Computed example of a mutant assay.
Amino acid sequence: MRRPWRPLNYHAARAMFVRANELLGSNWTLHDLRHTATFLMLDDPDMPPAYVQHILGHKYLSTLEIYNRPSRDDVIAAGLAHQARRELRKSNPPPAPAAPAYNPESLSVLFGGTP
């Protein structure tokens, strides 16, 4: 809102949050935005956790574990899906793998025959 126009730096963003919090009666911080962004990035199946680690500047990938909390509904759905897959495998076992087919000409060369 003020001139001259300039990039939003940390102190200006913090001041903006202070004013918004006073109006809303809340206590959000810039760090809360960082946590929200982290949860959203980790929830994206196309975003590798190693990239999130790099964006956040964490030394260890294990630091992201505090953000990786699946919802109760996701856990229940995954458990039910796992049980359904097990039941499906019991009632429809996969066929036995076929014996490997070797090229007789290759075997002949391998064991000292002529090509």
Rank of each mutant, 00 (worst) to 15 (best):
L33P: 00
P49D: 15
A15R: 11
S108E: 14
F17S: 01
G79Y: 03
G113S: 01
D73P: 03
Q83F: 08
Q83I: 11
R2W: 07
P49H: 07
M16V: 03
G25W: 03
Y67D: 02
R72K: 13
F17W: 07
R72E: 13
L80T: 04
S108F: 05
H31M: 11
I76S: 09
H31N: 13
P95S: 09
N27C: 14
W28M: 08
A101P: 01
M1K: 06
M16K: 04
N27T: 13
A98W: 01
H11Q: 07
H31G: 06
Y10C: 08
S62A: 12
Q83H: 11
S106M: 05
M1G: 09
I55T: 11
L107F: 02
T36H: 07
M16T: 04
R14Y: 06
V75I: 08
A13R: 08
R85D: 02
A99H: 13
R34M: 01
A101M: 13
E105K: 12
A15H: 14
P70Y: 09
I55A: 10
E105V: 10
P48Q: 04
I76A: 12
A98S: 09
A13Y: 06
P95N: 05
I76H: 11
A37I: 14
S106R: 06
D73I: 15
V52N: 02
H54L: 12
D46P: 01
S106P: 00
K59R: 14
P7A: 06
R2Q: 12
R14W: 04
R19T: 09
D32C: 10
A77F: 08
N92I: 08
Q83P: 00
V18T: 14
A84M: 07
L80Q: 09
P48M: 04
L23A: 15
T38K: 02
H58T: 00
G25I: 02
D44S: 14
L42W: 03
G79F: 04
G112W: 00
N27I: 01
N68P: 00
L80E: 12
R6G: 07
R85T: 01
P94T: 05
M47I: 14
P115E: 12
P115S: 15
R69C: 00
Y60M: 08
G112D: 01
A15V: 09
L88Y: 15
P94M: 12
L42E: 02
V18R: 15
I55F: 11
R86N: 05
A77S: 15
I66V: 13
H31D: 13
L110A: 04
G57V: 04
P49E: 14
R2G: 03
S108Y: 09
E105N: 10
E87R: 15
R34L: 01
S108P: 00
I55R: 11
P48K: 06
D46A: 08
N103F: 02
P104C: 01
G25Y: 05
D44C: 15
M1T: 06
G25A: 05
S91R: 15
E87S: 14
R19H: 12
I55G: 03
W5N: 07
R19N: 05
R14V: 05
Q83K: 09
I66M: 10
